[in-house]
């Protein structure tokens, strides 16, 4: 059962990712990204990382999509489409083929060398304890990342406001 869920989610992840790149409408691309994140969250939950799944869904599928859509609406007119010069159907058409072929090659290679995936140890501690006691550097890093991200966005948007 678990395996089926993982394989389906992986397929969904792949499809949504490819769609996100290939679709012409930017808003649709953002939504596909959100769907891909959701698929990833399912995989994480199934692999035994519930907190990771929680963060993934809330931040990536939720917060990021909101930011994307507000950014798109601020910068584009109603049609919100990828500009013509960036839309190269021929190249885009190659992408799914490449991905599938690469996947087959990797699986084949893994089977050929009798690849056994080592299983990562499940964390038995509460994630809060883990976070505070063994990943303090990351906490600091995350705080600064968020500040940085906020700063970066505000710098870029400030220019927009100044211009308009």
């Amino acid at each position: 059962m678990e395996n089926i869920i993982i394989y389906v989610s992986l397929a969904a992840l792949l499809v949504c990712g490819v769609l996100a790149v290939m679709l012409r409408s930017i808003i649709k691309d953002a939504i596909c990204l959100a769907a891909a994140s959701a698929a990833l969250a399912i995989i994480m939950y199934t692999l035994g990382a519930p907190w990771a799944a929680l963060f993934e869904v809330s931040v990536c599928a939720g917060l990021i999509t909101v930011i994307f859509i507000s950014g798109i609406s601020l910068s584009h007119d109603t049609k919100a489409e990828v500009r013509r010069e960036y839309d190269d159907k021929r190249r885009m058409g190659v992408l799914p083929v490449v991905l599938v072929v690469a996947g087959i090659v990797m699986i084949g290679a893994g089977a050929a060398i009798h690849f056994e995936m080592p299983v990562a140890q499940r964390l038995v501690q509460d994630f809060r304890e883990v976070f505070w006691n063994s990943r303090q550097a990351d906490i600091w890093g995350q705080i600064i990342v968020m500040l940085t991200g906020g700063t970066a966005i505000s710098v870029l948007i400030k220019e927009e406001k100044k211009k308009s």
């Binding site: 990943r135 550097a137 990351d138 600091w140 890093g141 995350q142 600064i144 700063t151 970066a152 710098v155």
Partner: peptide, 28 residues
């Protein structure tokens, strides 16, 4: 603003003891 964030990121990178922290500061 950006310069101070950059400075923090670089300082953090050289002082990290863990590959993941290194990555986080690298992202900054």
């Amino acid at each position: 603003n950006l310069l101070m964030c950059l400075l923090l990121g670089m300082n953090g990178m050289v002082m990290a003891t863990d590959l993941f922290s290194l990555y986080v500061f690298l992202e900054i």
